[in-house]
Structure formats: structure tokens, C-alpha cells
Design a binder for these strands. Structure first.
Length: 878
RNA sequence: GCGAGCGUGGCGAAACCGGUAGACGCAGCGGACUUAAAAUCCGUUCGCCGCAAGGCGGUGCGGGUUCAAGUCCCGCCGCUCGCACCA
């Protein structure tokens, strides 16, 4: 009597039982004596509406780890929440007249139900949403603490300004120099911004990367590049002469037009090759001169107008204008150099000024060639002759021996850098310095749907923090969104921003900027450790117990920003007294970046995107079901709503079940690589589910308990036992090492082997029952519903989800004979079976006497026989 | 331009420290069951030569190290990702 496995009944049944027994709750530290903790976390989602099967991969991977750890006796924390502030809610409000709050919470409710259908072992009692005042209240408190500790400050910063939407745009919202929504040309504006002092930790954030050995090298490298530490020197170039209109420098006042020009370089060894200085178009001196010289003003305007897109910059020709200023060479006051403004000098890096040493820098060389500035080589490449070596169009940027450089002559690049800095220090013309590419983090956003910044602007007292007793500063709900009135709705609100100054009691205004949503996600992992605490972001003891996150799982797209900000935040929380258990400031001990789910894209004849479910394969051609018309099959891309190449999760689970979805997204492709969602792959997973169930049901006996002694059995039954115990070893190892696709393959192997053993003897029944028990346990992290159903069918009580992970019997798992390939001159000619660990001499004899080997040894001399124990024999002969 | 990664059957892939290349899945082919189909089950499937036993070739291309290379080294080609005038 066999019945088809009915996921529509089985899956909800087990989810209800798990929930009723609260098995997914993390234990309080006091209740978890003797257990190790495991904090498993997937990057929490933005509640955009509905989830598709593509989203499920990330959560499934985390779930496999969480379930695996629980089976291995850990106290597991596996929570879920919502990254709930952000622009899409405001866009929806504008487009559809819905309130961002309602839209967001509706989406959360829908997505929570969808996620629950996946059967994830999540402690839902800890759910949080960053848009709850109960959450952002603590964020505001931490903001104030950071402010007090000088980790928050205000600064005029260049921003991308959309003049139509009246708002700041993030870099990724600027497409080809135009605002992504309005299409208006983006301007650069200077705005007073709230800034987090990330650079305070620049060195630590960089150095600590070496200790994050459970992070992908790629991510560590990306962060390292992003921080971009470089060692060099600051050099001060005294003004020799300047246009008369520049006023003289008042003594003691810095940053004046006639002050020495500060330049940053990593190559002070090439100072004697210098032939000009170049300043950024918005360098203070450039701007001062532009006020008096129309040609310079025109040049500055031209640079500002040039698009900010990378392609524009790439194509832009090196251009400049002579500013009419002359400076003295630091090593020789009689040597004067011209000062130019140049479009390739960035004001945002270093000091916004460089010295041009054309023979050693391609940009400088291009520039010098264009404007006929002189240059001479000062670094002699290895193997070149100083008498004949010349530079014309290609600069030499590598190391060499310094020449044409007076006291630096004959030194290596490295020694010359040290020597040059020594001399600069002696002459008080410069000093060694370190530069970072990393900038402080501007967090001001002119938006409604974000965490209000707890600050008040008072004409008398300046910028005043909101007193702790007045937190949270909540968002007003009576807000209007109007397409015709762009900008920040908070700013337009009739009453919200008008408050009394907490300091003087006078009329004042609230800060109407809200925080970048990356702030919300920079500490949510810590809030999960104590998610309902009303008085503090989290209890220190609880956070110390759970943190760091033992396994973090998410997309590579967050390799830099989210992960770097979280590392910053953890250090800042530590140093402001919120956190004391994470002394190294690292929030995520181990990181896994998973690949995406990709799918073909389909376009109808009229050019609109089609959902996969609206198409069908007929005679090998893809057609639109409604019309029968041919469909244009496009590239295989990441599943996304905009291209409609998505498979809806609800519908899929209805048709095939959550276990099929979970099994499929983990099979075939390695987890870090993308996996293509295909109908045939689904079929494979579906067949497997059916096969596991059919075999389990057909067995018809209770399975032996773990450790139960086995009866005598036939060799094929014994072989199944061996395979099952080896599968335990392999799958355990595969999960531990994130090789889920290999674990899946082991599952197929075990099922194939179980199906092959047909006998009904006591031995066979035992072996089959044991193998089925092991199978149900090994698949339980992957297909938890099916595993429970099988576990129950095999006569066990309680949940397989909470049963102890199976342990392989070492004797059964061990291989006592091994098959050794025998090679002659590296080509395989035969195989022999030998006892494991057989003596070299014995194996050697077996190999040489083998019938299949002999013909290849005739007429040649055996030079050498290599025997690698338990691996291979290679006979070298000629 | 700089940096990193990848390249294996018709497809997704596996291969631990250099030791039988292609596990496992999909698709294909042949067969069983069936009036038929679906489902299921069994067999088979890198290419070439051969009736077969077997042989030869084969991990993007070209070299090298080694008894032995998908794996290590050098040089190309292609693809993907990150950064991008960073001084």
C-alpha cells in the first residue's frame, strides 16, 4: 500500500507542531548550561512586497546551518527581521497614495507568512522592524552617545543634488550623471551633513581584516581596497611669486592663498623629476585666482559641468590652465616650478594638489606632453643604461635606481623615499603621512521614511541634542506626499519641526533630515540578542553571550558598505559603553556570501517582459500561453521583479512544496555560485522527495535505534550499512564546509543504494531501516518537513529536528580494502584490491605480477616502482 | 588601466595535500511494465578506432616542473566581479 507523498498536508502539519513545541526559540543563557551557543543570521530583507524563490536561497542556507548546529547540541539563535525604512515606501506613497507606514507593515505581514511557508527554524519571538519606534529609539540614543564621543559631527560635504526632486541622491542613484527618478542632470552641491567618523577606526578596520579568516578573501580584499591606505609624504611648497591681486597672507592664519601649497605624494623619491604642481579645480587657491581671471573661472566651470559618470572621466582629456603662480622646490629654493590647475586632480583625495613628475607617472606625462612642460627621468629601470634611457610617451612607474637626483643618486626607490622624507623633515618642508581613500560616512538623507535625527537647531544655542528623556523622536504620521511638491515631506510638515530649544527654551527647529538606512542595519544583529529591551539597545550580558554572529550569510553586494558600517558600528558601540563582550569590535566571526538564483528572461513580440508561468515550451520553442506567439528568450539574469523572471514562492510551494524549493536551490551549483532555476532541476528535486517517501513507506518496519546492535547479515546489506555511515561522515563535513551541493549528491547516492537492496532477511531489514533513519536525519536540515514525516514513519517519537545528529560508526565507515590503480609510465593499466595500509612490498609484487600489466613491461627495463600507500602504484619503465 | 576570481561531457557540476577525470542531478538513447500515455523501474551515455577484448586522445591555448598535473609554475586567450585620473 503506497500513497503519494502529500506535501500540502504534511508541511503545514509539521510547522504547526514545531510552533506548538516552540523548538525554534533560543534558550536564555541561564537555561543553556553546558551548551555552546551558535548565532546564525541571514542578512535581513527589505520588505518590498512579495518574495520569490530567488530570495529563498539565502534563508535556506542559513537554516541548514542553524538546524545542523541545533542537532549538534548548540543553543541556536536564528532570528528574522525587517530592514523597513527606505525610499520604495515613499515612492509607493507617491504613486499610489498609500502611507509608507501602512505599505511597509502590509508588506511585512505578507512576507512573514511567505517565509513561514519555507519551514525555517526561526525564532519569530525576536522579530523586529527597524521602522518601529521601539527600535529606532535606541538608535537615536546611540546617535547621541556617538555625538558626545566625537564619532558624529557636522560637515559641509559635496553631495549629488537632484534639482527636480530637491533631494540628495546616493552615488548609485545617479545614472549617467542624471537622477534615476527625475532624469534631471545632477548637480554637485555643498550641504551641511551629519557624518559618522568612520575614519577614526580606519587603521583598525584595515588591520583586523587579517584576523577575519572565516571571511571570503574577496570581501576582505574589497574592504581593504575601499579603505585604501597609502603611505607617503606631505610636502609644503613655498610660493616664489604669485599674481599681485592675491592678498598677502596674514600671519598665523592657515589656509590662505599665499600659504605654502601642501601636496601629498607616495613617491617623494621622484622629487627631482618634478616639473610642475597641479591643483584640483576646486582647490582654494584655484578658486581664489578664478575670481580674478575669467579663463581660470571658465576652466573651473567646465570641470564642474563635466559629468560625474565614470565613462566621462575615463574619456576626458587631461586639461589644465597655468595659474601664474611659481613655487620653490623644497630641496633647492632657486629652482622654481609653475603651478597649474588640472582636471585630473581630485580635491577629495589627499590635499587636492600634486607635484607632477612626468617620467614616473602616466597622467603627469600626458599632461606635460600636452602643455610642452619639460621633464627628465629620475628612476632608471633595471637593465637600462643611464646614458641611453629616455622617456617619451610611456612613464616608468615601477621601482628602479634613482639618478639625475643629486643626493638621492644610486639609491633604490624604497631607500630614496626614506631618505627624501628625512631631508624634508630636516628642512621643515614636509613629513611622512598616511592617507586613506575611506571617507567619513555622510548619513543625512532628506527623506521622510527614515529614523529622525535627534537634534534641534536653535538660533541662539546652535545645534543641540534632543535630551534622552524626550526620545524617541517619532515620525509624524499625518504627512502628505505630493508629486508636485518634491523634497522632504518632514520639512513641509506644518508643526512637527517647531519645538522649544532644550537649552534656552527659545523657538527652535527640529532637524528634518533622517538617517541613511544603512545605519538601521548596522546594529540589528545586536538588537536580536535582546529585542524587546525598552531601556537600552540591548542588555550587555545578553549581547556578550550571543555576539559575535557565528555565521552570517548574505549577498556579495554588501561586501563593502553594510559590512564595513557594521564593523564600524560595533566598535563605536563598544567604545561608547553599549557593548563589552566583543572586544575586537568584529560583529561577524564567519561570513558566507551566497550566489543568486538566476532565470532566463522572456519577452513577448510586443517587447514586454513575461513571467515564466505565462510561457510554455512547445516543440522545443518557447511560446506565450495566451497567444501562442513565439517568445524572445533573453539572457539568464538574477531574478528580479522588473524583468519578471521570477517564480512566486507561494504558488511554487502550493505546487511542489517548500522542501522541493529548499532542496533545489541547494543542489547542482556550489552555494557561492549562481544557480539557474530550471523546470528540469525542479523535477529532479521533486522526484527525490517522492523517492525518499516511497522507500521509507515501503520499508514497513520500525527502524533500529542509534547504537542498536546489528544481526548477522549478507554482504550487500553490510555494504549498505557501510555506505550509510560514510554518508554521515561526508554530509557532516559538507555542511560544515558549505558544500551543500555535494551533500545533496550524497543524499542521492544513499537513496540509490537503499533502493538497490531488495532482501527481506533480518540483516537486510536492519540495514535498510538504519539507512533510512540516517537518511531522514541527514536530509533534515535541507528538507525538514519530509524528514519529520519519515522519522515518524520509521517509528521514532519526538522531532528529528531536535534529535541528536547521527554519529558514524568508525568501523563501518572505514574502508578495509582499497582499490589501487596501477599505472605504467603514468597511464592506468589495471586495478587491484588491497587491504588498507598494505605493505609497500606486497602491493609492489601484486602490481608487477598483474596479468593486465605484464604486456606493458615486456621488452623494457623497470626503472622504479612508486607505491603510494592506499592511493596508487606507478611503474616507471623504458 | 589596476586588482581578484573563474574556464572540466549536450547542460548544472564532482574530484580532499599533485595520485583512477567526469561522482550526483538533468537531458539523451535502449529496455521492462502498459491497449496507449504519464508515472515508476532496469540498463546505457566524454570523443575517436574496433565485432569484441582492448587501444588512442581528452579538463580554454602554448610551454615548464614531476614517476604522476584539472590541481603547481611561466606566457597567452576568453568570461565574470570589484575599484577606477587615489598622486
Amino acid at each position: 500500500m503506497s500513497s503519494r507523498y502529500n506535501h500540502r498536508e504534511v508541511e503545514p502539519k509539521w510547522r504547526e507542531r514545531w510552533a506548538a513545541s516552540a523548538i525554534d526559540r533560543a534558550l536564555a543563557p541561564s537555561a543553556a548550561e553546558g551548551k555552546k551557543k551558535a548565532y546564525v543570521l541571514e542578512m535581513f530583507p527589505y520588505p518590498s512586497g512579495r518574495i520569490h524563490v530567488g530570495h529563498s536561497r539565502n534563508y535556506t542556507m542559513g537554516d541548514v546551518i542553524a538546524r545542523f548546529r541545533r542537532s549538534n547540541g548548540y543553543n541556536v539563535l536564528h532570528p528574522m527581521g525587517w530592514d523597513a525604512f527606505g525610499l520604495p515606501a515613499e515612492n509607493a506613497a507617491m504613486e499610489r497614495g498609500i502611507h509608507p507606514k501602512g505599505w511597509t507593515y502590509d508588506n511585512i505581514a505578507a512576507m512573514r507568512e511567505q517565509l513561514k511557508l519555507l519551514g525555517l527554524a526561526i525564532d519569530w519571538s525576536r522579530e523586529l522592524a527597524t521602522c518601529d519606534a521601539t527600535y529606532y529609539k535606541h538608535q537615536q540614543a546611540m546617535f547621541l552617545a556617538f555625538w558626545k564621543n566625537d564619532l558624529v559631527y557636522r560637515k559641509k560635504q559635496k553631495v549629488n543634488w537632484d534639482p527636480v526632486d530637491n533631494t540628495v541622491l546616493a552615488n548609485e542613484q545617479v545614472v549617467d550623471g542624471k537622477g534615476w527618478r527625475s532624469g534631471a542632470t545632477v548637480e554637485t552641491r555643498e550641504l551641511e551633513q551629519w557624518v559618522f567618523r568612520v575614519t577614526a577606526y580606519a587603521d583598525d578596520l584595515l588591520d583586523a581584516l587579517t584576523k577575519l579568516d572565516k571571511w571570503p578573501d574577496k570581501v576582505r580584499l574589497m574592504q581593504s581596497n575601499w579603505i585604501g591606505k597609502s603611505q607617503g609624504a606631505k610636502i609644503w611648497w613655498d610660493i616664489a611669486s604669485a599674481p599681485n591681486f592675491l592678498p598677502p597672507s596674514p600671519a598665523g592664519e592657515p589656509n590662505h592663498a599665499r600659504d605654502p601649497i601642501e601636496v601629498y605624494t607616495t613617491r617623494p623619491d621622484t622629487l627631482f623629476g618634478a616639473s610642475f604642481l597641479a591643483l584640483a579645480p576646486d582647490h582654494p587657491l584655484t578658486k581664489a585666482i578664478a575670481e580674478q581671471r575669467p579663463d581660470v573661472a571658465a576652466f573651473v566651470a567646465e570641470c564642474a559641468a563635466l559629468g560625474t559618470s565614470e565613462a566621462d572621466i575615463e574619456k576626458a582629456e587631461k586639461k589644465g590652465v597655468d595659474l601664474g603662480v611659481r613655487v620653490k622646490h623644497p630641496f633647492d629654493p632657486s629652482w622654481e616650478l609653475p603651478v597649474w590647475a588640472a582636471n585630473f586632480v581630485l580635491s577629495s583625495y589627499g590635499t587636492g594638489a600634486i607635484f607632477g613628475s612626468p617620467a614616473g607617472d602616466q597622467r603627469d606625462l600626458d599632461f606635460a606632453n600636452k602643455y610642452k612642460l619639460p621633464f627628465k627621468p629620475v628612476v632608471l629601470p633595471p637593465g637600462e643604461d643611464a646614458a641611453t634611457y629616455t622617456v617619451t610617451k610611456d612613464a616608468y612607474t615601477d621601482d628602479g635606481v634613482i639618478y639625475n637626483s643629486r643626493f638621492l643618486d644610486g639609491l633604490s626607490t624604497r631607500d630614496a623615499i626614506t631618505r627624501a622624507i628625512e631631508e624634508l623633515v630636516k628642512l621643515e618642508k614636509g613629513e611622512a603621512t598616511t592617507q586613506y581613500r575611506l571617507r567619513d560616512w555622510g548619513v543625512s538623507r532628506q527623506r521622510y521614511w527614515g529614523c529622525p535625527i535627534p537634534a534641534i537647531h536653535c538660533a541662539k544655542c546652535g545645534v543641540v541634542p534632543v535630551p534622552a528623556k524626550d526620545l524617541p523622536v517619532t515620525l509624524p504620521e499625518d504627512i502628505t506626499f505630493d508629486k508636485d511638491k518634491p523634497g522632504n515631506p518632514l520639512d513641509r510638515h506644518p508643526t512637527w519641526k517647531h519645538v522649544k530649544c532644550p537649552s534656552c527654551g527659545g523657538e527652535a527647529q527640529r532637524e528634518t533630515d533622517t538617517l541613511d538606512t544603512f545605519v538601521d542595519s548596522s546594529w540589528y544583529f545586536a538588537r536580536f540578542t535582546d529585542p524587546t529591551n525598552p531601556d537600552a539597545p540591548f542588555d550587555k550580558k545578553l549581547a556578550s553571550y550571543w555576539l559575535p554572529v557565528d555565521q552570517y550569510v548574505g549577498g556579495i553586494e554588501h561586501a563593502v558598505l553594510h559590512l564595513l558600517y557594521s564593523r564600524f558600528f560595533t566598535r563605536a558601540m563598544r567604545d561608547c559603553g553599549f557593548l563589552d563582550g566583543v572586544t575586537d569590535g568584529e560583529p561577524f566571526a564567519s561570513l558566507f556570501t551566497q550566489g543568486m538564483v538566476v532565470h532566463e528572461t522572456y519577452k513577448s513580440a510586443s517587447g514586454t517582459w513575461l513571467l515564466p508561468e505565462d510561457t510554455d515550451l512547445r516543440d522545443g520553442k518557447r511560446v506565450e500561453i495566451k497567444t501562442g506567439a513565439a517568445v524572445d528568450v533573453g539572457a539568464i539574469e538574477k531574478m528580479s521583479k522588473s524583468k519578471k523572471n521570477v517564480v512566486d514562492l507561494d504558488a511554487f510551494i502550493q505546487d511542489f512544496g517548500a522542501d522541493v524549493a529548499r532542496w533545489f536551490v541547494l543542489s547542482d551549483s556550489p552555494p557561492e555560485r549562481d544557480v539557474e532555476w530550471t523546470a528540469s532541476g525542479v523535477k529532479g528535486a521533486w522526484n527525490f522527495v517522492q523517492r525518499v517517501w516511497t522507500l521509507t513507506e515501503a520499508h514497513g518496519h520500525p527502524a533500529p535505534k542509534p547504537g542498536e546492535s546489528a544481526p548477522a547479515m549478507e554482504p550487500d546489506a553490510h555494504a549498505l550499512r557501510q555506505l550509510a555511515h560514510r554518508a554521515i561522515q561526508s554530509v557532516t563535513d559538507d555542511i560544515e564546509n558549505f558544500r551543500f551541493n555535494v551533500a545533496v549528491a550524497r543524499g542521492y547516492e544513499l537513496v540509490n543504494a537503499i533502493a538497490k537492496l531488495k532482501g527481506q532477511t533480518a540483516g537486510s531489514v536492519f540495514a535498510r531501516g538504519e539507512a533510512l533513519r540516517i537518511l531522514s536525519q541527514l536530509i533534515s536540515p535541507f528538507m525538514p518537513h519530509l524528514a519529520e514525516e519519515c522519522w515518524e514513519k520509521l517509528g521514532f517519537t519526538g522531532f528529528v529536528a531536535t534529535a541528536a545528529w547521527p554519529v558514524a560508526d568508525p568501523e563501518l565507515a572505514a574502508r578495509n580494502t582499497v582499490t589501487l590503480p596501477i599505472q605504467v609510465n603514468g597511464k592506468k593499466r589495471a586495478e587491484i584490491d588491497a587491504p588498507k595500509g598494505a605493505a609497500e612490498a606486497d602491493v609492489r609484487e601484486l602490481a608487477l605480477q598483474h596479468e593486465a600489466v605484464k604486456p606493458f613491461l615486456e621488452g623494457v627495463t623497470i626503472r622504479k616502482v612508486i607505491v603510494v600507500t592506499d592511493r596508487i602504484v606507478n611503474i616507471v619503465a623504458n
